[in-house]
C-alpha cells in the first residue's frame, strides 16, 4: 500500500473534509444570501428590472423616513413590553407547574399548545376574537354590562392587543425551557436550605434564580430576537394599521420591499434590523457576563 500523505497531514486535512459539506451548504444558503443582501442594499432594484448602484442612498432614505423611525419605536415598545412579560410569566408558570399540582401534565400541555400551532392560524383566530361586532371578547364584555371596544381598529388599543396575543403565543414555549431548567436543579439544595431555615422566597432568590441563569440568558436572548422579528401576527391581524400604529420593523421591511417594490431599501432595512438585534444580543451577553455558570 502506497502512503500518499503523512499521518500528520492527514490529521490536519481530514477534519476539514468532514465539515466541508456542511460548510458548503452554509456558504450557499447563508453566506451568499447575506453578501447578496449587502450588495442589493447598495442598489435601486424592483426585482424584475436591472439593479442600479446608488451607494448608501438606501440607508440615508431609510434613516430619514418618518415611517421607519415610527416603526423602530413601535418595535422597541413590542420588545420592551413583550419580553419582560413573556419571560416573567413563563418563569412563574414553570415554577407553579414544577410543584405538586393536580393535572399538572394537562396544564403543561394546554399552555404549550399554542407553540406548535401555526402563527397565521393563531392570528386569524384572535382577529375573530377581537372583532368589534362579532368577537367573543366584546360579547363577554357586553354580558357584564360593559361597552364593546375596537381592539384592533383603534390605534391606541391595537398595539396592546397584538402584544397580548404575542405573549399568549410565546410564553408556553419559554415555560417548557424553564421547566427543563428547574428539573435540573438538584433537590438537595432545597433540602439543605430548608434545614437552614430558609423561606421559600429565599430559596427561590438564592438557589433557583442563580442556577437558572444560563437558561434565563437563552430565553431572554431568544425572546428579544423573536420580538424584533415579529411579523406574522402583524401581517395577519392588522397589516401594520390602523394607520401605522402597529408598523413594526419587519412590517416596514415588507412594505418597502414588496409593496413599494424597493428591494434595495428593503435589504437596507433588513441589515439595519440585523445590526440592532446584534447590538442588543451583545448587550445581553455582557449583562449576564460572569454571572452565568454552566
Amino acid at each position: 500500500m502506497i502512503k500518499l500523505v503523512s499521518w500528520k497531514t492527514q490529521r490536519r486535512i481530514v477534519p476539514y473534509i468532514f465539515i466541508a459539506p456542511a460548510m458548503l451548504l452554509l456558504a450557499i444558503f447563508t453566506f451568499y444570501p447575506i453578501i447578496s443582501s449587502i450588495r442589493m442594499s447598495l442598489c435601486e432594484w424592483d426585482i424584475i428590472g436591472t439593479p442600479r448602484f446608488i451607494g448608501l442612498r438606501n440607508y440615508a432614505t431609510t434613516l430619514s423616513d418618518m415611517t421607519f423611525r415610527h416603526a423602530l419605536l413601535v418595535t422597541f415598545l413590542f420588545v420592551g413590553v413583550t419580553v419582560p412579560v413573556n419571560v416573567t410569566l413563563a418563569l412563574l408558570t414553570a415554577i407553579l407547574l414544577n410543584g405538586r399540582l393536580a393535572l399538572r401534565n394537562l396544564f403543561r400541555s394546554i399552555i404549550f399548545f399554542p407553540a406548535f400551532t401555526s402563527m397565521v392560524a393563531i392570528g386569524m383566530l384572535w382577529k375573530y376574537m377581537y372583532s368589534t361586532d362579532y368577537g367573543i371578547i366584546n360579547y363577554i364584555i357586553t354580558l357584564f354590562g360593559g361597552h364593546p371596544k375596537d381592539w384592533l381598529a383603534n390605534p391606541a388599543w391595537a398595539p396592546w392587543s397584538l402584544m397580548l396575543t404575542s405573549v399568549w403565543y410565546g410564553f408556553g414555549w419559554n415555560m417548557v425551557i424553564f421547566l427543563a431548567g428547574l428539573q435540573n436543579i438538584p433537590d438537595q439544595y432545597y433540602e439543605a436550605a430548608a434545614i437552614d431555615g430558609a423561606s421559600k422566597w429565599a430559596a427561590f432568590r438564592f438557589i433557583t434564580l442563580p442556577l437558572l441563569k444560563p437558561i434565563s440568558l437563552f430565553v431572554v436572548v431568544m425572546a428579544v430576537i423573536y420580538a424584533f422579528r415579529m411579523f406574522d401576527l402583524v401581517y395577519v391581524m392588522t397589516m401594520g394599521g390602523p394607520g401605522t400604529s402597529t408598523m413594526v420593523l419587519m412590517m416596514y421591511f415588507y412594505r418597502q420591499a414588496f409593496i413599494m417594490l424597493r428591494m434595495g431599501q428593503g435589504s437596507a432595512v433588513a441589515l439595519i434590523l440585523f445590526v440592532v438585534v446584534f447590538f442588543f444580543t451583545v448587550l445581553q451577553l455582557r449583562f449576564f457576563k460572569g454571572e452565568v455558570s454552566y
Binding site: D133, L152, A153, M237, T238
Partner: peptide, 21 residues
C-alpha cells in the same frame, strides 16, 4: 359607518352586511 371596517381592517364590511348589521 363602522370604523373597524376602514380600509377592510380589521373587519370586513361585507361580513357585517351579510350578518345584517
Amino acid at each position: 359607518e363602522p370604523i373597524n371596517t376602514l380600509f377592510l381592517k380589521p373587519d370586513s364590511h361585507e361580513q357585517l352586511f351579510a350578518l345584517g348589521q
